[in-house]
Design a protein around this nucleic acid. Structure first.
Lengths: 224, 224
DNA sequence: GGTTCCTCTCAGCGTTCTCTCAGCTACGGC
DNA sequence: GCCGTAGCTGAGAGAACGCTGAGAGGAACC
């Protein structure tokens, strides 16, 4: 998909660009509201990710302008945690969804997919690896038909592994994708959560399971 | 690809230039941050390899400057092991990936290929020599369909041999490519690891195997 | 306000890997 | 056939790596 990210914080902009491109999207970045508005008017995007706090012209104004010009490109707004702005206001000015900073990449990616799908009402593809099924819409995981209860973090982690099944993924990549973008811890937390997931999804048969790739990270092995 | 390497340590810079050119890339070297910034602004590169500790302008500043100017050329940062600097900081300022010194050439080369591929998310090509298969993405090795478990070092060594299959490669070249660039041991490690690999991948049939070229090094012979 | 659940940190432990060393083997020149 | 050197290998030390249990702090829910 073609995405426009309007974000003035260079660190975050670059993080988003990197991740979204790795997901296979074409990403343009605008550093302020006017540049964002100009690009949105002159290019065609599938989704616009729009920060609220922006130089020159804030997110609400950009959003309102576009909707006033009958530009209905889906817009995902980014709001700060200690929301000086009302979240409802984002939706009222015509945004399709919002996300509170800080957020993790897996969550952002899911939201973008979700609002891009609006109007085309199929549910998001269920991820299947072997007899493991993860339904992003229902937020459920099952193995061989029986549901497995997982927490939010475990769910994101498993979703990431399933989207990269068969590949060895580095722990730092997992950290960058699943944890908040400004997460400041060491990667031991990944090991801990891999441990939790294993206890929940591993089974004694030769099915898909999480393998350790020493010195690299982990791989969701496809069983047979 | 066109690569820019910003590195003030002359030994390392020349090592990188030599190796990357042997890989078929065009390499420019900058000795300090300002020169690096100037080249990055005035030339077009596929990837920038950027040391953090630099005279005049450090890697973080160079990276932040470029991102601030909407220059999104993929950047691979080099950080020192005893990280005075936070590694996450490298990614936060807009770097696409980082590598901790000392590193081996095979790893650097793989990372450069990986970040240059962003946006085109296909997996890197599987290497095949005879019935030996090495999958860089999955980090797996198999011979005739059955998986062979190898350690990280063995994997790097085999990858190097397979990328040069049929050629006689010198032990010192192997040492330079697979071991850390400032490795200070004798080349007996290479012999030891060749031994480990042979025990794992050799088979009794007339298939690809590692031959000793006396006085030179080794050759991965292509069987029939 | 209390309880439960979730997330994350930390430290200790066991495993696995890497590398060195020393003695052995075998190749190739004479 | 002998000898010197290059290469091979088994043993073992030390380090790196990954896993886990315990528990603190917070958020969510009643």
């Amino acid at each position: 998909m073609r995405l426009l990210v309007v974000e003035d914080e260079v660190k975050l902009a670059s993080y988003l660009k990197r991740g979204l491109e790795a997901d296979g999207h074409a990403v343009d970045i605008a550093g302020d509201g006017e540049e964002g508005l100009w690009l949105a008017r002159n290019q065609s995007y599938d989704v616009i990710v729009l920060d609220i706090m922006l130089p020159k012209r804030n997110g609400f104004q950009v959003c309102a302008d576009l909707r006033g010009e009958s530009n209905w490109t889906p817009i995902l707004m980014l709001t700060a945690k200690d929301g000086e702005f009302d979240i409802e206001e984002a939706l009222d000015t015509g945004a399709d969804d919002y996300l509170t900073k800080p957020f993790s990449f897996v969550v952002l990616s899911a939201r973008i997919r979700a609002i891009a799908r609006r109007g085309a009402p199929e549910r998001p593809a269920v991820l299947e690896v072997d007899d493991l099924r993860l339904d992003p819409a229902a937020h459920t995981v099952e193995r061989g038909g029986t549901e497995i209860k997982v927490t939010a973090k475990e769910f994101s982690l498993l979703e990431f592994l399933m989207r990269h099944s068969g590949e060895a993924v580095r722990k730092t990549n997992i950290l960058n994708a699943v944890w908040d973008w400004d997460f400041e811890g060491d990667s031991n937390v990944v090991e801990v959560y891999i441990g939790y997931l294993r206890r929940k999804i591993d089974d004694p048969f030769d099915r898909a399971s999480i393998e350790t790739v020493r010195g690299v990270g982990y791989r969701l092995r496809v069983g047979r």
